[in-house]
């Protein structure tokens, strides 16, 4: 098949079924946005369950959230905001052809994501020590509400699903970092950073909502 747009030189990552690199870029981005819609609705199921239970048992949420540590939740929020910033910086570096900065920014993002997960790990294990397990394994006497287990089920499910997304994001960041070190990205071709960045920002946005919904209930 002849390449129909031979007038411009293409990156080696150009796929032949597109007319030009611009179309490929815009297509990838729209595809990612559509995928993000599916992510919103997937988390949406859990958020809907949260809303239903919170409106049924407002006391439960006020009482149970005292077991969550607002300080570390806040730190994690700041960590994720920082990682969002560095992803955006990585994209900017790619657009300006500053190849070294791409790798640096991606590296910082990866590190911040790891910090997030470590903090998350200590939060969870601390609760496990208290006997706050999800669902039927819940074994904690500190909250005088018969449905306390449901609150923590929601907590573990929502932060857990979010955590899985962070882990996937870390895998993607690692892959991008590896590729950037192999000099795959420049101002002509940075689609993977752009769309992974979109994914990462959405993970950040979800945490922006999870934080007040779980940690900031008085």
């Amino acid at each position: 098949m002849a390449d129909h747009s031979s007038s411009t030189t293409h990156s080696r990552f150009f796929q032949h079924h597109f007319v030009d690199a611009e179309q490929q870029f815009q297509t990838a981005k729209m595809g990612m946005w559509i995928f993000l819609v599916t992510e919103i609705l997937m988390f949406g199921g859990l958020f809907a369950a949260y809303i239903v239970f919170r409106l049924w048992y407002p006391d439960l949420f006020t009482q149970a959230s005292t077991e969550l540590n607002t300080f570390w939740g806040g730190v994690n929020t700041v960590v994720l905001i920082g990682s969002s910033l560095t992803v955006a910086m990585a994209i900017k570096s790619a657009q300006l052809n500053q190849k070294k900065n791409i790798a640096i920014n991606l590296g910082i993002t990866l590190a911040l994501a790891a910090v997030f997960m470590v903090i998350k790990y200590f939060e969870w294990t601390h609760k496990f020590e208290l006997g706050i397990f999800p669902g039927q394994f819940y074994d904690f006497g500190g909250i005088a509400h018969e449905k306390a287990n449901v609150f923590f089920s929601l907590y573990y499910l929502m932060t857990g699903l979010h955590g899985i997304h962070v882990l996937i994001g870390m895998g993607l960041m690692g892959w991008l970092l590896w590729r950037s070190l192999k000099n795959h990205f420049d101002s002509e071709y940075y689609t993977p950073i752009e769309i992974t960045g979109l994914y990462w920002h959405l993970v950040d946005i979800i945490w922006i909502f999870l934080f007040p919904l779980f940690y900031l209930i008085e």
Partner: peptide
């Protein structure tokens, strides 16, 4: 909104 408008 800030993240969506300016980071994304």
């Amino acid at each position: 909104g800030l993240v969506a408008l300016f980071f994304m």
